[in-house]
Design a protein around this nucleic acid. Sequence first.
DNA 1: GCGGGGATTAACT
DNA 2: GTTAATCCCCGCG
Length: 197
Amino acid sequence: MTATASLRANRLPAAWFARDALTVARELIGCALVHRRRAGIIVETEAYLGPDDLASHARFGPTARTSVMFGPGGISYVYLCYGVHQMFNIVTGEDGDGQAVLIRAIAPHAGLPADPAIGRGPGKVTTALLLDRAHDRRDLARGALFVASTELVPELASGPRIGVDYAGPWAARPYRFWWRDHPAVSATRSVSTRRKR
DNA sequence: GCGGGGATTAACT
DNA sequence: GTTAATCCCCGCG
C-alpha cells in the first residue's frame, strides 16, 4: 500500500468540518493534507469566523467568489492573492455560517522533497501539492483531494493572524495556530501556547 | 467601466 | 527593512 493510499483510509468526513472554524483550525494541526500522491502534515492554520470577522473574505457577504464560504463545511476555497499566490482554505461549520480555515504551512510527508521550506507559507502549500484555483469548491469527503487524521500529537501554539492589520479589533485575536517550534511553520511569533488533548 | 488594495514571496539594500 | 511582481475582486458610479 502506498503512503497516500493508507492515508485515504483515515479521510476526514464532511461532519468533521461541520464545526466552528477555531476548533477545526486547532485540530487540523497534525492532520495530513493529501492531493493525488502528494501529502503534507498541516503545521499552521488560521481561522476566519464569518461575515462579522473583518479579516475574512466573508465580510462582504456571499459574492461570486466567496459564496462557497457560506455553504456547508468540508469544501475547498482557493483564491488568488496579490495576483500571484494561490491560497488553500477549507470551509467549516454549517450551511450559512461563512467560516473557513486557511492552511498556512505543511511539512513534507509523502511524494515531496524532505525540505521543511517546501510548504512553509500559504503560497508554498498550493505550489507543493500542485493545487490552484481549479481545485476551488472541491468536496474533501470525496475525490483525490482530502484531509486525513494521523497518530501525531502536536504541541500547539496560537497568536494573531498574519497580514490582517486592516481588520481593526479582529487583527489581534489569536486565531492563528501552529505546531510549536516546527521547522515548517512560516513565522515563529508566539503569544500563547497550549497542549493538544 | 475604473481604481484601489490584498489571508504573499523572493530578492534585493 | 523595502520593494516589485501581478491580477482579480470589490465597491462605487
